[in-house]
Design a protein around this nucleic acid. Structure first.
Lengths: 363, 363
DNA sequence: GCATAATATGAAACCGCTTTCATGTCAAGA
DNA sequence: TCTTGACATGAAAGCGGTTTCATATTATGC
């Protein structure tokens, strides 16, 4: 193996001390321009690249960001990570990936991560509530940014969307299409986003003056199976009691719903209109294609990295509690979502019908 | 922030030297059982976890494996990474993820990775040929394992499948279904796997005594658009000249083909049977669902990690060129694939028809 | 022209761990 | 009883950087 070029070699070749080379590396201002040039040139010639490990050790801060992610096969994750990777690339940081393969204690993982002393900050992609251990570490000063979901109250800096408003839009879309009895398949209560989506749904109903019927709210787990269960429940209903439309809290459940509905002879959107939430890749390919709220996953990844690094560089976006000691809620970056209209909501069908009627009356 | 517990603290508390603690950490044999117990207990009490960074620096080898991956949104990648992550989890190694967001020079990336001196080994998930730089480093002793594809000749230890046999099976499946004129949409020539799949296709034709018609082989890029182009080309053919079936070298292109075919009024599988290759998540959801060769991505990830670590631990699976200096090809782990029969090949339709005919003749 | 401050640089300590080498201990063999 | 090793442990030298503190050099003000 090639003997690695070290800072010492550079120093010798440039006729300066290690300290000076280090200064050049870290872009300190107090180095004579001439010296800097020379050192830089030699580094170039020698193909020198400083050891992150050594720098981290010595400097007490590393240039690795730990990324805590759920299993990568969860459909929203790759796109987020792509954003993260892209953002990281433009920096001199690297990613240490801790992908939790279902069923390990998150606390264990968090411990493992930090204790290593490799990473000095953490990016958490975690649906559902955060572990106490993580909160504890964060309160001890560890820079942490959470993507998307959080526990009951936002406790850490985060990047996400406005679930309530988005759900409102999804529901409103159904209302505008003329549906009156609109059901909701919600996510598990411990997910903040599930609650917010439910609220958005309720609000849209209220604002439209539509009655809220608790019997039309179904509980789900965010998993495909919940969609199937829900479909079965709806199919079992006497046709008269059946809702005209359904807002499902995530696409994953929507898939389960669509496939079960097909098997049960429930036609989407003719018998029942469906709107999902997430817009994961599959959503454009299921039959019928799924009308859904598009989450900007890629952008979320990018923004999370930027936020994390800015926290790290101590530009404390987080105005440190002033003299008055007032509580400052953690910073949150909220990205816009978009309603993607496809087949499952019936908008396209309605349009066509309207156009037909229109052209008929025209003639 | 909590002042990190160091090996020195443990040593003091246990009344031994740092060296001894280090020995315990590294499970060296020459430590009295009693001492080991005591040290371990103290480490436990103090919640001590050694710094990977320091260990790596001092020991000259790190416990980080660099994973070089294409953009995570490429559909085969997440599943591979899941396998990688799962395998890593059972070790005391961690993953440093270098995800290349399209369009950067791979050499640059490789340099960046290694120079950092963070990772002492590399897992490369890269479709297409390897960069010379990577080969050079590998020949200098850097442990590298490649997942799946390689350049014209296998130069590095790798984990993959037998593309030739798999393609043979895919084609044979079509032949057995009774198709005679079978076309092939192949991948780009610089991909070893593309060549091998083509060979498998040819071989199956030959063995079945079917004539090979060069006009039925189309060139693709492995991207969706190629599928569309191919569909257009086929649709333009006079019906008599049209093939009865098509083996497409990857699912991605197959999707393009299916969607374009639908638009062009080409019915799959009635007018043309299709078999793909990969079995990525979407394949079960497109219409018609895609019959395809399933690659064991998850297992590939796992196996790659295991192979890499065994190389690293110097158990040199790779019998070092003996005295006779004979050339030893790099080790390769080849995993089995499986033909997943869905709608696009027409097997289900045929079955049904046969059953119908059968029941008719029965009566 | 000289004191003073600002700037540039070097020497050495240190980050937390591994590893070599030397030392100390104790049991087996002579 | 005295070697001779095998075994257990400690002291200290790194690994490749960063950082503090001291020193040398140059610029500034009077």
């Amino acid at each position: 193996m090639k003997p690695k070029v070290t800072i010492e070699d550079i120093a010798r070749l440039a006729g300066v001390s290690k300290a000076t080379v280090s200064r050049v590396l870290n872009e300190r201002s107090n180095v004579k321009a001439e010296t800097r040039e020379r050192v830089l040139r030699i580094m170039q010639e020698q193909g020198f690249v400083p050891s992150l490990a050594a720098a981290g050790l010595a400097g007490g801060r590393s240039r690795l960001v730990g990324v805590l992610a759920p299993p990568l096969t969860q459909p929203t994750v790759p796109e987020i990570l792509r954003g993260v990777a892209e953002a990281i690339e433009h920096t001199d940081y690297e990613i240490v990936l801790y992908s939790t393969n279902a069923g390990q204690s998150p606390t264990t993982i968090v411990n493992r991560i930090l204790a290593l002393g490799l990473t000095s900050c953490l990016l958490v992609i975690q649906p559902g509530p955060l572990t106490p251990r993580l909160l504890q570490l964060a309160s001890q000063g560890l820079p942490v940014v959470v993507i998307d979901d959080q526990g009951p109250s936002p406790e850490l800096p985060s990047v996400g969307i406005d679930n309530c408003v988005s759900a409102y839009q999804a529901t409103l879309h159904l209302i505008r299409l003329g549906y009156r009895r609109i059901a909701h398949l919600q996510g598990p209560a411990e997910f903040r986003c599930a609650q917010e989506r439910y609220q958005g749904y309720r609000q849209a109903l209220d604002d439209a003056g539509l009655p809220f019927d608790p019997a039309l709210v179904f509980n789900g787990t965010f998993e495909t199976s919940s969609g199937r269960t829900c479909a079965a429940a709806l199919a079992a209903l006497p046709p008269a009691a059946r809702p005209e439309a359904l807002f499902i809290a995530n696409d994953q459940m929507a898939f389960g719903f669509l496939s079960a509905a097909e098997a049960l002879g429930l036609r989407i959107p003719q018998d029942l209109a469906v709107v999902g939430f997430d817009d994961i890749p599959l959503s454009a390919h299921v039959r019928p294609t799924l009308t859904t709220i598009k989450q900007p996953f890629y952008e979320m990844g990018r923004n999370a990295v930027e936020l994390l690094l800015s926290l790290l560089h101590g530009q404390s976006l987080q105005p440190t509690t002033g003299a008055e000691g007032g509580y400052q809620p953690p910073i949150r970056i909220q990205l816009p979502t978009r309603l993607v209209i496809r087949e499952s909501c019936g908008a396209l069908t309605l349009h066509r019908r309207q156009e037909q009627e229109h052209s008929l009356s025209d003639e």
